[in-house]
Design a protein around this nucleic acid. Sequence first.
RNA 1: GGGUCGUUAGCUCAGUUGGCAGAGCAUCGGAUUUUUAAUCCGGUGGCCGCAGGUUCGAAUCCUGCACGACCCA
Length: 479
Amino acid sequence: MYHLNMEERLRKLKDLREKGINPYPYKFEKTHNFSEIKENFEKLNQSETVVTTAGRILTIRGHGKTAFATLSDENTQLQIYLRRDRLNEKFELFKLFDLGDFIGIKGTVFKTRTGEITVLVDEFSMLSKSLRPLPEKWHGLKDIELKYRKRYLDLIANPEVREFFKKRTALVNFIRQFLNQKGFLEVETPILQPIYGGAAAQPFKTFYNALQQEMYLRIADELYLKRLIVGGYEKVYEICRDFRNEGLDRFHNPEFTMIEAYEAYTDYEGMMELVEELFQFLVDNLLASSTIKFGDNETEIKKPFKRISYIDTLNKKVGFDILNASPEQIDNLCKELKIDYKGLSPGSKIDKIFSALVQKEIIEPTFITDYPKLISPLAKEHRKDKRLVERFELVIFGLELANAFSELNNPIEQRRRFEAQLAQHEEGIREIDEDFIEALEYGMPPTGGLGIGIDRLCMVLFGQPSIRDVILFPQLRKD
RNA sequence: GGGUCGUUAGCUCAGUUGGCAGAGCAUCGGAUUUUUAAUCCGGUGGCCGCAGGUUCGAAUCCUGCACGACCCA
């Protein structure tokens, strides 16, 4: 377990303790962080201000009776300079410091011959002893599996990764800011649910001992947020971690972050406007340009987004009316497209065909509108076509980023849809959420609802090719 | 689930036709009072992912397994 590199460090740890130094002290008060020292250099330098600061040692360059070290704090790096003639016998203590250790220093700032802002150290202390060697300073940590499994090392060794995850947080904060400004109320609903619903997906099961009852980690929070609309809130949203017990690849992590928003007295047209406005807001606040790149593709985020009809586009592609096609016709198409269609409902087959023929080809931000009723049990029937519902998905670079409906608020129709879904024996619900229907029976106003996948949005806006690059601790098999 | 590729020192990577296990950084010892991928001299460090097989001999060829990446489903 302890390799040779560690033995030396353990020796130094012991040495520190023998000298009466606690290698893991409790607290250290900084007067400045590194950015503040750099930004205020002239003032600090002229007034000979004594600064107190701290960071992790990244490199040490020893020169006999002096030493330079580069430290890292959360945002940037700073060089320090230690001299035997200033520190006297305490200078020798620095030999017990290694790369990776946290050091606290006190000193004055100056510029070296080459113009680098540096702190000339008058006092220094061990803030935490590191027992393991850091990844290499020049190449960083490249091994992709190690980067995911030991993200802390990735964050230490690759400052751009540390920077990237700040951008993810900024993205979420701007979404919050946007919705809050619009008068939406952020709420929290259960992650542990006795009945799962709101999407077609397999849940993670667990067991609640106190109630002696099986529970599920939510696959969506749709049904709870709609209950809140029934309750009288008119605009609500939740930034929710959802869980789906399904495959794991470049676009799927079993736990992922969604934002779901519901607004009373509007419909899916209203949700399209909201999405366009939100995306504009995010681009303005987060990106240098409205042009985004993903793999070999490039596009611009600019409203209004293109709108295409699900059925019209698909029918044009296949050359017949797919909603009136025979089961054989659809199966043959699946075979042609090498889709594994066994056990799928007619609706799911059509959706797989759509995904292969239409969705994958879409690059520019596009609203796909008016989905088949078969695959949309929670959306309201289309006002002009009974076979369809008022639903859209936003697709960019072939990826589904948002999904929205004019929400179905007719309780009788909702029960029929759930029953039809149960009869299909399809993945998705196994039990009707009677309380949800009861809530609808008390009356839900006309409502527009929207879900946006935050992880994928992050991938697309920031050009990250894998969902594992936008999740701090992506799921991997236990090694 | 299927296919392709990968796994060698703490990290980044070489390793020729099957013939002694290598480099840089890190680490240790020495020199060095403005360096910055510091420099110079000398060391330490290996279950070559794991388990089998072929062979006089395997990091290298074969089989299985584990983990990962990409593609397909």
